[in-house]
Amino acid sequence: MGILEVTNVNKRFGGLQALSNVNLDVGQGTVHAIIGPNGAGKSTLLNVLVGKLIPDTGTVMFNGASVLGRKPYEINQLGISRVFQTPEIFGDLTVFENMLIPCFAKRDGAFRLHALESIASEAALIELAEHMLREVNMIDKRHMTASSLSRGDKRRLEMAMCLVQEPKLLLLDEPTAGMARADTNNTIDLLNQIHDSREITMVIIEHDMHVVFSLAKRITVLAQGTPLVEDTPENIKGHPKVKEAYLGEAAA
């Protein structure tokens, strides 16, 4: 039984059947990629997974609890972290403050009125934040304003902010979109390293086949809102149905 189970999900926008009968079972500790051509419903599926969209039918269960209709901060508290297509970080704050916020959130929950406490007295959280920054090689940049970081570093920071909360599931929406090749490879290395050291379950939505085949242990191919095949990367590579979906009927 998987950590994330999507059962019989349908979603229709007006006349467009965005998702039809999607079933997905993501095993504990695996890296599961969802690929597919443009308009296949990848982003819709991701939005269903984080509770942002409520499907017309079907269920999404995470660790035995339904995620549907929950607010983003409740989804996070279940243990799901999300990395966005364009890095979402606190641009006006320093790198170190960016790291502190998820540490506070993990310890104190969705709200706490700590208006008269000082940050300097939170030795354990400071230690945790610095440790994480060291792990992603950003400790030298701790005093920089986050918006002045390079794109690769922003992505690194965003992932570090997710990881410091020790999520059970990490959702990645095209983590290397718009990156230069070198940055892409760095990100792949970082993700592999994260997976090896923490055994975090990851779900990756990705366009770039290089990234997918470097990371994924299992791949689901989505086309026109329906999962075509689900298999290991080796089997997916030469699969006729996949070629068909990507290259059109003639190539099959």
């Binding site: 901060y73 970080i89 506070f104 709200f111 008269l116």
Partner: peptide, 28 residues
Amino acid sequence: LRIFRSPFGIMLRAIKTNQTRMSYTGLN
């Protein structure tokens, strides 16, 4: 001054900067 320097103050500045990241970090 205490509020500005407190964790609460950082949270308020975080709200100004990025509410999406704020909520996906588990904060209301």
